[in-house]
């Protein structure tokens, strides 16, 4: 216990407090909020999956996000686009695309997100053929009225970003999907010749579904693939540890064990 003698507390006048608060308010510099601030996801170190999506998001929870620089294979830019009717504005296109995103995916694949908004985490299940669903996910990195971008987690087939956007060209609204990716690890890189064909079919069908939603029944889908960097990033070969293909198979094989545990 302190033996110091306590000093009497001097009462402070209300006016003095008000003045101090006022001066404090004036002294604080106003920080200009950038126009794009609301469109970006907040920084996350490890992804968190909502409890109701935990079963589907077993390959996503706790993972870090990966950009193209964290991947293994060559850096590719793939672009798919389709012309819509001029009456559809880019804002209308993106608003509808966000609202119906899951329904535009080809049958047999599942998008587990409920909302396309910055910071949302969506587990996904991709049909790889042969009955196996590859479980992975995406983070909504960016979303504004005319575009939105997904970023992939560790273990996804690709390390990179997928941007969905709308813009006007020659008085026609164009829907576009642009993907900047590297395969994540050496195993996915080896299967790239097959994966790129599957990927191609997947996004072309998605584009057709989007166009059909806006009344364009026989949309002409244009696709372009450019190799941005031919170098593989061998230092990232260890990404194979998170490989979602391997982990999805293991998860499938251990399903009976989980069932028994739950029954106890």
């Amino acid at each position: 216990m302190s033996t110091q003698e306590q000093q009497p507390v001097q009462p402070v006048a209300i006016e003095e407090i008000e003045l101090a608060v006022k001066e404090q308010t004036v002294a604080v510099p106003k920080t200009k909020v950038p126009r794009d601030a609301a469109y970006w996801a907040p920084k996350v170190d490890r992804l968190v999956v909502d409890a109701d999506k935990a079963a589907m998001g077993f390959n996503v929870a706790g993972r870090r996000v990966t950009g193209p620089q964290q991947g293994f294979g060559k850096l590719w830019q793939r672009t798919y686009s389709a012309a819509l009717r001029p009456t559809v504005s880019p804002e209308q296109l993106i608003s509808e695309w966000k609202d119906h995103f899951a329904s535009f995916w080809p049958k047999g694949n599942r998008f587990g997100g409920t909302l396309i908004a910055p910071g949302e985490v969506a587990p996904i299940a991709v049909n790889t053929g042969g009955g196996l669903k590859l479980s992975t996910g995406v983070l909504v990195l960016y979303a504004d009225p005319e575009s939105f971008t997904f970023m992939t987690p560790e273990g996804h087939m690709f390390a990179g970003w997928i941007t969905f956007s709308g813009y006007v060209e020659n008085e026609t609204t164009i829907a576009q999907i642009q993907i900047l990716l590297r395969t994540s690890d050496p195993l996915f890189e080896m299967s790239w010749p097959v994966m790129k064909l599957m990927e191609d079919r997947f996004w072309r069908q998605t584009m057709r579904n989007v166009a059909a939603h806006f009344g364009v029944t026989r949309a002409d889908i244009t696709g372009k693939t450019v190799c941005v960097d031919t170098k593989r990033q061998w230092k990232n070969w260890r990404n194979v540890w998170h490989n979602s293909g391997i982990r999805s198979v293991l998860h499938l094989l251990t399903a009976p064990v989980r069932l028994v545990r739950r029954a106890r």
Binding site: P34, D36, Q77, S147, F148, T149, T163, Q178
Partner: peptide, 9 residues
């Protein structure tokens, strides 16, 4: 004063 996701790409 403005960067979007395509700009980052």
């Amino acid at each position: 004063d403005y960067i979007n996701s395509t700009g980052i790409a």
